[in-house]
Each structure stands twice: as structure tokens, then as C-alpha cells.
């Protein structure tokens, strides 16, 4: 029982068996993963560190203000004074992209956190709440999964209104059904496992049983998927703010910056390039790291 109490990622106990079972089958997918890693991984980690610095202390990397306008220097091309050039109001784009890291990452993080929470609760409810709860929740998930995420998010924004918090919630709603399904499936498996039976036999109260034994072992696969999901959420959230539904103007959020820069593309390519590059670079880092986590995880537990 000791092995199930504090482990947030499930199944190190199950690993040896799984590896033995899996071993003769895997040569093909394992080979490319071994050939590539160090460089891509190091680059991704370095970029992640840079992103975190930009998000936590953008002032360390650029002393220019992201908000102050200098109309005389509007739309200056990239150069020594302004590495990424300036926007239509003469604001330094390099500073704005750096300061944009925090709001943009927060949008994606917030959306992912809401989605994970909602997915966990609904997945547990479906798996443990009896047949009716299961039927209703999973039918609802089927319907929601049949709609494109962006459309679902737009529907949610219509209801909730615009703004950062609402964009997070809207994106989260689009992701919840997928996460709920995974948690439900895992919970159904975990519920039948030996250690849960043992805990029931020992007379552990049900809520405690769920929190201590079922929950930690059922959320692992979802958390691994959520790393890649964070990248998707970030892109989608920036997309909503690109459509003008997110944080409002002076805030240097990447999607909003792209949207405001659109009208000046004819004369100033840089206003459209750099904020988007920041979104892509972030998604790239997240994808590289998330897929490694996923590959390691499936190699360890998939039988």
C-alpha cells in the first residue's frame, strides 16, 4: 500500500512487468528516439529557460518599456536600437514580445489547469458515479468532441464574454471532454486493481480511497497528454485573442499583437513576424518536451 500513497505519476510499481512484456515488440519506435535526443532536448530546455526568464522578469532582458509610445519612431525596421523593430505606435517590439511571455503563457497555463481540473472531476464522476452519471457525462463528451474546439470555444466566449479569464475558460471547455474520457478509462482500470481492493478490504472510507488511491493513479496519462495539450491550448488561446476576444489592447499579448500588427503588414513585415515566432517557438518547445515525456511514459506503462 505504501507505493500508492504519495506518487503523483502512477505505476513505477507496474513498470518492470510492463517492460518485460513490451521488450520484444518495440525495436522500431525506440530507435529514432535514441538517435536524435541530446541536441533537440538541450535546445528545448535552453529555450524553456529563456521563456521562463522572460515570463518572470522581462526587465532583465530588455530595459525598454512595452507600453510607452514614441510616435516619432513608429514602424522602425529591426536594427541595433530596436532588435525586432518598433510597432505602429513606436513601441519596442523586442520588449513587447518579452513582456508578452507572461500573459500569453498564463492564458495557455490557465486554460490547461482548468481543463485538467474539469476533466479529472468529470472523469472520476463518470467512472465512480454509477451508470446514469456515466451515460449522461459520456454522451455529453461525445457531442462536445464532435464539434471543432475553436467553435466550442467561440460558443463559450459568446456566453461568457471576452477577456483573459473567459478565454481560458472557453479553451478549457473545449479540452475537458477529452481529458475526462482518459481519466474515466484509467479510473475504471484502477478501480479493479489489487491495491484498491486491499484498501476497500481494510475498511478505508470511500472519499479517502478515491483521493489517496484512485486519483493519483488515474490522472497520470492525462497529465502526460496535458504537456502537449498545453501547446495546443496556448495556440488556441492566442488565436482567440487574435480574433479580438482576449486581453484588450495595451497588454502585450502575442495573439493580440499579431492582430494589431495585421494592418501594417504591407509596409512593416516585422510586426507580423516576431510575435507569431514567439508563439511558434513556445509551442515547439512544449511539443518536443511533451512528446519525450509521452514516449517515456508509454514505453514504461503500455503493455
Amino acid at each position: 500500500m505504501a507505493h500508492t500513497t504519495v506518487e503523483p505519476v502512477p505505476g513505477p510499481d507496474a513498470a518492470p512487468d510492463a517492460v518485460l512484456l513490451k521488450a520484444p515488440e518495440v525495436p522500431a519506435p525506440a530507435a529514432p528516439a535514441r538517435r536524435r535526443p541530446p541536441l533537440a532536448l538541450l535546445l528545448a530546455l535552453a529555450a524553456l529557460a529563456l521563456l521562463l526568464v522572460a515570463a518572470l522578469a522581462p526587465g532583465l532582458l530588455s530595459s525598454a518599456s512595452p507600453i510607452e509610445t514614441h510616435p516619432a519612431e513608429a514602424l522602425t525596421p529591426p536594427g541595433a536600437a530596436h532588435w525586432f523593430g518598433t510597432d505602429q505606435l513606436g513601441r519596442d517590439l523586442f520588449a513587447r514580445v518579452l513582456h508578452g511571455a507572461r500573459p500569453s503563457l498564463l492564458l495557455g497555463l490557465g486554460a490547461t489547469a482548468f481543463a485538467i481540473t474539469g476533466g479529472t472531476l468529470l472523469g472520476l464522476a463518470a467512472a465512480l458515479g454509477g451508470r446514469w452519471a456515466d451515460q449522461i457525462l459520456m454522451r455529453l463528451a461525445d457531442v462536445l468532441l464532435s464539434l471543432p474546439p475553436i467553435l466550442l470555444a467561440l460558443l463559450a466566449v459568446t456566453v461568457l464574454g471576452t477577456g483573459s479569464l473567459n478565454v481560458m475558460l472557453a479553451i478549457a471547455i473545449a479540452f475537458v471532454p477529452g481529458y475526462a474520457r482518459i481519466v474515466r478509462a484509467e479510473t475504471l482500470v484502477v478501480r479493479r486493481s489489487g491495491y484498491v481492493e486491499a484498501a476497500v478490504g481494510l475498511g478505508l472510507p470511500r472519499p479517502l480511497l478515491i483521493v489517496r488511491h484512485v486519483l493519483p493513479n488515474a490522472v497520470g496519462p492525462m497529465l502526460v497528454l496535458a504537456t502537449v495539450g498545453f501547446g495546443t491550448a496556448l495556440i488556441a488561446a492566442a488565436g482567440l485573442s487574435f480574433l479580438g476576444l482576449g486581453p484588450q489592447p495595451p497588454s502585450p499579448e502575442w495573439g493580440a499583437m499579431l492582430s494589431q500588427g495585421r494592418r501594417f503588414l504591407a509596409t512593416a513585415w516585422w510586426v507580423g513576424v516576431f510575435p507569431g515566432a514567439a508563439i511558434t517557438a513556445t509551442a515547439l518547445v512544449v511539443n518536443v518536451l511533451g512528446r519525450r515525456a509521452q514516449a517515456r511514459f508509454t514505453r514504461r506503462t503500455d503493455a
Binding site: 488565436g239 507569431g276 515547439l284 511539443n287
Partner: peptide
């Protein structure tokens, strides 16, 4: 990893 709206902006530019 590229958002479609950014690809669009790059191609337009």
C-alpha cells in the same frame, strides 16, 4: 507547432 493564423500572416507578407 505553428498557429495557422501566423502561417497566413507570413504567407501574406
Amino acid at each position: 507547432s505553428s498557429p495557422s493564423y501566423w502561417i497566413g500572416i507570413l504567407l501574406l507578407t
